[in-house]
Design a protein around this nucleic acid. Structure first.
Lengths: 233, 233
DNA sequence: GGACACATGTAACGGGTTACATGATTTC
DNA sequence: GAAATCATGTAACCCGTTACATGTGTCC
């Protein structure tokens, strides 16, 4: 997060040094409504962790930093004897966020880190049943993601989602999350089935199976689609 | 990487403290054949970055640490006046790797970090054309991934891949990579098309579109599949 | 009265990134 | 002889994680 020099240029604010993605994520949430740190932590735990995984402690730290930078303000409420901090965005925070939304993303594509794939790669050094265990672990874990996606879908259909008014935009997110969870489910399921068939196959059959996959994937040519060509606009 | 106490137990080595995933990734590569740091860096740049992204400098640092831990050895070759280090796995390194392959993975599912999704989430704060720019950026960047996957597929079909002998195992990786690249391509393409239609739609139509997506995704029930139920085996 | 969720942090550590630096070899 | 690629690092920095700590409210 570090220093954060804000320069007021002719077209609004320009940032000398930017926040981390976590910082913008929280600032963005504050732009929608005031949040307590607990609510933010909950939000990250339930909804954001699939494409912005962060430790709980970070969610309590970052809002403080935003306040220190003048991008947010805190108000302390008392619920009985228990106190809680409510964070709100400041006008400066709104400007900084707007400037960020105007800028092109730092990373355009998704960053994936997938230990299981490394284990698949090194699987020839071990036994097939270890590979199966890895793939089953992936699939089992993914069931949770599928359940969460289902829950979110139900909430929007029932009209009781916290951000129902953004349903249209959020449906793009939901589309991605579901596609991803379904991909992991499908991939792990068919890979388990494949590995299970290997012992009963001849070397030639195995060779043929591998080559068939390499020959068919990725599907070639995606011609005749919207807005062909480079450019970020 | 830090300390790394190896204890020789009744069933082979037991590790007191483990390597990072990067450490195991490189150790795993050394188990297949000796590599120079440059080759490793190339390998990470071309093949691994999609599911284990690491800075180049890290690839030069980690093998040195493996040597310091006694898991690998270096040999310095001279090509003309230019020298290069060739790294090889030691017997201890092989044991440690085998022990790791035996253990269940630390993270079973994939970890995703996707700035563009955050921008989709906050898109209602900006203009639709900013959202379109983000989605187009994602799709354009993803073309590169699709091209790389195609290249890899061609190499295996032609029988000239560096690890042709592992074609069967690696086809599982290829399957995942292609599925993912195709997902990103499909998702970004259909999302661009959707956003472009929004201006010409009535509020009711937009509402209906959103709800339709939430109602259909994720696909419900995945009954009658292999090995139902929990458990890591 | 015990368990569990609510609620909010702090301190230390380190893995990985960014930025920089440098020289050799090949290609045009 | 300029440019690109080959080839190998080092130093500083810091974001995020791990692990710990602590008290409140509520349910049974």
């Amino acid at each position: 997060m570090l220093r954060f020099g804000v320069v007021r240029g002719p077209h609004g604010v320009e940032e000398r040094m930017s926040l981390t993605l976590t910082g913008y994520a929280i600032l963005g949430h504050l732009a929608l409504k005031p949040w307590t740190t607990y609510e933010l932590a909950e939000q990250f735990r339930k909804n954001l962790r699939h494409y912005l995984p962060r430790a709980e402690s970070q969610i309590y730290l970052v809002p403080k930093q935003l306040v220190a930078l003048g991008l947010a303000s805190v108000r302390t409420e008392r619920i009985g004897r228990r106190s809680r901090s409510v964070y709100e965005i400041t006008p400066l925070g709104e400007e900084v966020l707007r400037a960020w939304l105007q800028r092109p993303p730092d990373a355009r594509g998704p960053a994936l880190e997938f230990e299981a794939i490394l284990r698949v790669m090194l699987a020839p050094l071990g036994e097939d049943d270890r590979l199966l265990a890895v793939l089953r672990g992936v699939r089992d874990d993914n069931q949770e993601m599928l359940r969460i996606a289902e829950q979110i879908g139900d909430d929007y259909v029932a009209g009781r989602a916290p951000f129902q008014r953004f349903a249209l935009h959020r449906s793009i997110m939901h589309d991605f999350l579901c596609s991803f969870a379904e991909l992991v489910d499908d991939w792990s399921t068919r890979s388990i089935a494949r590995v299970q068939r290997w012992p009963s196959m001849s070397p030639d059959e195995r060779e043929a199976e591998a080559i068939a996959i390499y020959a068919e994937r990725p599907r070639r040519a995606s011609a005749g689609r919207e807005g062909r060509g480079r450019g970020t606009t």
